[in-house]
């Protein structure tokens, strides 16, 4: 992976994180929480399994921690673990239907959200938020997949 590729991936994740922070301000009132940034990261790990390994996931996570102000290392840990899971299942994904893949990433984003809330919102932890966000992020994954696929085909040079 070249630096240019890394920057493209990184910027797309940052845009996702920025969209999260704008939308979640309103969505949180309805027990919903988007994880665009995380799903964009998952998309890259899913579609480029040979490019996004432990070190790049760790670095992207650390920078995300600095930007969103979460405890230092939290996103790094979650991104690295998610990257490992996605890499472990990368051959299995080939026989999965798109619905199964969607459920996998919706579950993964729910775990991500659950852990974020566990560390950052301990006193107001809400299972309802996690459950509703599971459904929401499943739907969001479909759009993220389509949009990122289009962008990858048109702008990403391997």
């Amino acid at each position: 992976m070249t630096i240019n590729n890394f920057l493209q991936i990184f910027i797309s994740i940052l845009i996702g994180v920025a969209i999260d922070s704008k939308i979640n301000f309103f969505a949180i009132d309805y027990y919903l929480s988007f994880t665009f940034g995380f799903l964009v990261f998952c998309y890259w790990a899913f579609s480029l399994p040979n490019n996004l390994y432990a070190l790049s996931s760790f670095i992207i996570g650390l920078i995300t921690d600095l930007i969103i102000g979460s405890p230092f290392g939290l996103n790094a840990l979650l991104f690295t673990v998610s990257s490992y899971l996605i890499h472990s299942y990368r051959y299995s994904f080939k026989i999965f239907s798109f619905l199964q893949i969607t459920i996998f990433f919706a579950l993964l984003s729910s775990f991500y959200l659950g852990f974020l809330n566990l560390f950052m919102n301990t006193s107001n932890f809400s299972y309802l938020l996690i459950l509703l966000s599971f459904l929401l992020n499943g739907i969001v994954w479909i759009f993220v997949y389509m949009i990122m696929n289009y962008l990858k085909k048109n702008f990403y040079n391997q």
């Binding site: 290392g73 939290l74 690295t80 490992y84 560390f119």
Partner: peptide, 12 residues
């Protein structure tokens, strides 16, 4: 890297 991230998190 998971161990390093966990150490960072603990220290923070």
């Amino acid at each position: 890297f998971i161990i390093v991230a966990a150490i960072f998190l603990y220290l923070d």
